[in-house]
Nucleic acid binder design. Structure first.
Lengths: 101, 101
DNA sequence: TGGTAAATATAGGACAGCCTATATATTTAA
DNA sequence: TTAAATATATAGGCTGTCCTATATTTACCA
């Protein structure tokens, strides 16, 4: 089989990062661990940090560096974007979830 | 804003195709319309057909041609793959739905 | 019959999400 | 103070999801 789940299940990393940060501020390693809890696998550094960089560059998150740790949190824009994204996500995939309960 | 929803929300087209086909068999245009109902936008032909081709090549769906229509349905393998994919999906994103109700 | 519409297909390009590998900075431990 | 561990960063490559544009096949209608 070509993909782990039969079909491609990649995607929405940045969405998941925003969602996690809406719960509490975190640094990179904490984000990686939270994703691992959900997906079963930790995104590699080369996957996660470029995504964080991009989200920062477009102004959806901000990071405060203290020592070797950078603590990320949502900006106001990030919060609003996430609201729209969640709505789109639920409209697109909500029934999949409903269906399997 | 770079993306429509602030963060990237692309992805999981093949997953959604499999899920739709688990409800009933459909041809390409019907699949496109069902996706439009959910996402708000119809995938373009150049997006949808290569995805269908790939799913067929890896044996997750089969297509029966009658005239200009090709009716797609899941194979047994496709059904099993979808089951795994749904489980992964719910584990990864289920709380996003829970959260927004 | 001939032309248009509908459904499918393919080419070619952009970009996000994935990886491995390597590098840098900071902290901790020996 | 030096070595190892931790956190972040970057380079380079692959693939799926997106697009536009073009082509092909089949159906339908004038």
């Amino acid at each position: 089989m070509k993909y782990k789940y039969g079909c491609d299940m990649r995607g929405m990393l940045s969405f998941q990062i925003l969602w996690l940060l809406s719960k509490r501020q975190m640094h990179g390693e904490q984000i990686a661990k939270e994703i691992e809890k959900r997906r079963g696998e930790k995104p590699k550094a080369g996957t996660l940090y470029p995504a964080l960089k991009e989200l920062k560059e477009v102004g959806l998150i901000k990071g405060i560096k203290r020592g070797k740790l950078i603590t990320y949190s949502l900006t106001q824009t990030g919060r609003e974007s996430l609201r729209h994204a969640v709505r789109y996500f639920c409209r697109s995939f909500g029934e999949v979830f409903e269906d399997s309960r």
